[in-house]
């Protein structure tokens, strides 16, 4: 079983971190994993994306043109990658940036505004972790279980506040989705 993710958006939206965190979670859950970033020389702005492959077998190509899960943080990313999402795949759309409804046959679209949800937690910087939480909640490739220990590993050296904020952010969609 192989699942191929692409997280795409503007530089600064956290799409590289999303991929890295997913890769770490999957590795700690015992999967084979590869993470491939792609970005320009700019620190902010420009386009950025990361490809994460999660598999129970050794991974061949770390890049892909058949995406199972696309996480589009802005309109241009949706435009660029949505054509490569396979039937049965998922597209997560940042509805704060993408206003037009998007329909692709045989692909499930999930809308959320992670920045708005993160603001409700008191820090919009964790919008990417809110988005990743939604992806993990909807895609059943691995047992979610309690991710506290993994987040503590990822954010080791950071303050307790940062760690608990990220713990809240990653489980926000799971908690709130029935009310949205």
């Amino acid at each position: 079983m192989v699942t191929k993710f692409i997280f795409a958006g503007f530089g600064g939206q956290g799409v590289i971190s999303m991929g890295q965190i997913l890769a770490l979670i999957a590795m700690r859950r015992g999967f084979e994993v590869s993470f491939m970033p792609s970005y320009g020389p700019e620190m902010r702005g420009g386009t950025a994306n990361s490809t994460v492959i999660v598999s129970d077998k050794k991974i061949a190509s770390p890049i892909t043109d058949s995406i199972d899960v696309l996480c589009a943080m802005n309109g241009s990313s949706l435009e660029k990658f949505s054509k490569d999402v396979v039937p049965g795949g998922f597209i997560f759309l940042n509805s704060g940036m993408i206003k037009e409804p998007f329909i692709k046959p045989s692909v499930k679209s999930v809308y959320l505004d992670p920045k708005k949800m993160a603001q409700a937690l008191g820090n919009e910087k964790v919008a990417n972790v809110v988005m990743l939480g939604a992806v993990l909640s909807e895609i059943n490739i691995m047992e979610r279980g309690n991710m506290d220990d993994i987040l503590e590993y990822i954010f080791q050296g950071k303050s307790d506040d940062i760690i608990s904020l990220n713990k809240e952010a990653i489980s926000l969609w799971e908690k709130e989705k029935h009310r949205l």
């Binding site: 890295q20 890769a23 590795m27 084979e32 994993v33 590869s34 993470f35 491939m36 970033p37 991974i59 770390p62 890049i63």
Partner: peptide, 9 residues
């Protein structure tokens, strides 16, 4: 460059 920039266990 791909091997330099990517991450793997």
């Amino acid at each position: 460059g791909m091997l330099g920039q990517m991450m793997e266990p």
